[in-house]
């Protein structure tokens, strides 16, 4: 077995449009994500990051180039269901993803559709709800939960399919700060404790600080790639494309400009306090 979970080879994707030539959403992307890796993809709206997510989940297939998920070619229709079981997807709006009237039924929806034995479903639902720390809410109606809790239920629904990889497309964009924290902590835990490969798409920089690797997209291209430290040390470039850097990173950058001697790769409060 290879260590590569996701591989994109020279992938271009064009959206068709009636009026013009079509819009190039991805432009010859090459990318390889290893099993167990925690990758954050940053970029503003229209940078191509959601298109990338849809390609990995075989919701769309490349206009040219190849996408492989755990060695399976997404263009081969026979692979589609296997790919979606391997790489589960969580979307931005929790209300659009929950289908049942009771939390545990919602989590069971995926495995039920796989035709799994009820006993096994029961086990998976319990495990998934425990993993997102929502077991005590199993009898609740989803609409009575907070945004963060709903999003964790959506993640549990994906977990119950036993994917090796989870792709999250701006899962925190509609949440308040405490909801965001809940979801981020859940994602980190799944990566660390369950060794799930995580592809987390966001435009919140602070969510990228703890990733193994950060990929910055702009106009369908990967323009920066590396550890959070190497990426965020390029404050100017990051700001130029309209993304945020953490306030302490920006402060450190401004102080350096004033001639104060501090390192270029400050990401956390602790690092800046120590540097001063």
């Amino acid at each position: 077995m290879s260590d590569v979970m996701i591989k994109l080879e020279n992938v271009t994707y064009k959206y068709e449009s009636n009026e013009n030539e079509g819009v190039v959403a991805l432009n010859g992307i090459n990318l390889s994500i290893n099993k167990g890796e925690f990758v954050v993809i940053l970029g503003h709206n229209g940078s191509g990051k959601s298109t990338l997510a849809k390609l990995i989940n075989a919701l769309i297939v490349p206009t040219s180039g190849k996408v492989y998920v755990n060695g399976m070619d997404t263009q081969d229709e026979e692979n589609i269901w296997h790919i979606r079981r391997t790489a589960g997807m969580v979307f931005q709006n929790p209300d659009n993803q929950l289908v049942a009237t009771i939390v545990e039924e919602d989590v069971a929806f995926g495995p039920e559709n796989l035709g799994i034995h009820p006993k096994e479903i029961r086990k998976r639902v319990n495990e998934a709800l425990t993993a997102v720390e929502m077991e005590e809410y199993k009898d609740y109606a989803p609409h009575l939960l907070s945004g963060g809790q709903k999003q964790r239920i959506a993640i549990a629904g994906v977990l119950a399919m036993k994917p090796e990889c989870i792709i999250l497309d701006e899962p925190t964009a509609m949440l308040d700060p405490s909801g965001r924290k809940e979801v981020i902590n859940t994602i980190k835990k799944l990566n660390r404790e369950e060794n799930k490969t995580i592809v987390h798409i966001t435009h919140y920089m602070d969510e990228a600080v703890e990733a193994d690797r950060v990929i910055v997209m702009e106009k369908g291209n990967i323009i920066l790639e590396g550890t959070p430290k190497t990426v965020f040390s390029q404050v100017e470039k990051v700001k130029q494309i309209g993304l945020d850097v953490p306030q302490v990173t920006e402060l450190a950058y401004m102080l350096r400009k004033e001639g104060i001697d501090i390192p270029q790769n400050i990401l956390t409060i602790e690092e800046l306090v120590s540097a001063l």
């Binding site: 503003h44 709206n45 931005q92 701006e170 964009a173 509609m174 435009h203 309209g242 993304l243 945020d244």
Partner: peptide, 10 residues
């Protein structure tokens, strides 16, 4: 600004 990227937000 909910759900907007930093540019849209600004």
């Amino acid at each position: 600004t909910a759900g907007l990227d930093p540019k849209g937000r600004d």
